[in-house]
């Protein structure tokens, strides 16, 4: 079948790839581009392990067709750290033990980052509802929520 040639930007890098028209963005990231940080837990939009941002908007990579990436900007977990510097959320997740097995972590980090970029003063309830699309079976969410709230507080402190 005829492959499509797509030109896009991934984590700030101009990127081109060939894909099948019905391939999901998640499959292209993982299989074609070797960006296996985004995980597949369900393939149906119910777990959030594949969370990425598309032109700054939080989406499930498993529910996006790869051809839709044409001309867009995509950010994945691989783009969160800058150089050798972990993002504050990444640091805090390790410090707070907000991950156990770590399979949900890439998706949770992408989603949490999208939240804090919109709202750096969320309530606990807001954080919980924002992250409701990210299943974590290990932690019971407690330490994840605490880590996100703590980073938000740090961000507000730094902004003051």
């Amino acid at each position: 079948m005829a492959k499509m040639h797509i030109t896009t930007t991934i984590n700030g890098e101009p990127t081109e790839f060939l894909c099948d028209p019905q391939q999901s963005m998640l499959d292209v990231l993982r299989d074609n581009l070797g960006l296996t940080g985004s995980k597949e837990g369900c393939g149906s939009g119910d777990c959030g392990a594949c969370s990425i941002t598309l032109d700054g908007r939080l989406v499930c990579a498993c529910l996006m067709l790869a051809p839709e990436a044409e001309g867009k900007k995509i950010e994945t977990v691989e783009g969160i750290a800058k150089g050798d510097q972990l993002h504050p959320l990444q640091k805090k997740f390790v410090e707070f033990a907000a991950l156990q097995c770590g399979i949900c972590t890439p998706g949770v980090l992408v989603a949490a980052k999208a939240l804090l970029e919109k709202n750096n003063n969320p309530t606990e309830t807001e954080v919980r509802f924002w992250l409701a699309g990210n299943l974590c079976r290990c932690t019971g969410y407690d330490k994840i929520i605490r880590a996100v709230m703590d980073v938000a507080a740090d961000m507000r402190g730094a902004a003051r």
């Binding site: 028209p21 019905q22 393939g43 939009g45 499930c60 529910l63 996006m64 051809p67 839709e68």
Partner: peptide
């Protein structure tokens, strides 16, 4: 028709939908 794709992709994956042409209207 492909709009957000949040139903269509799930249905394609499960084999419930086997489209020949996907028309993205965004």
């Amino acid at each position: 028709i492909l709009a957000g794709g949040t139903d269509l992709l799930v249905q394609m994956r499960s084999g419930m939908q086997k489209p020949g042409v996907i028309v993205d209207i965004k």
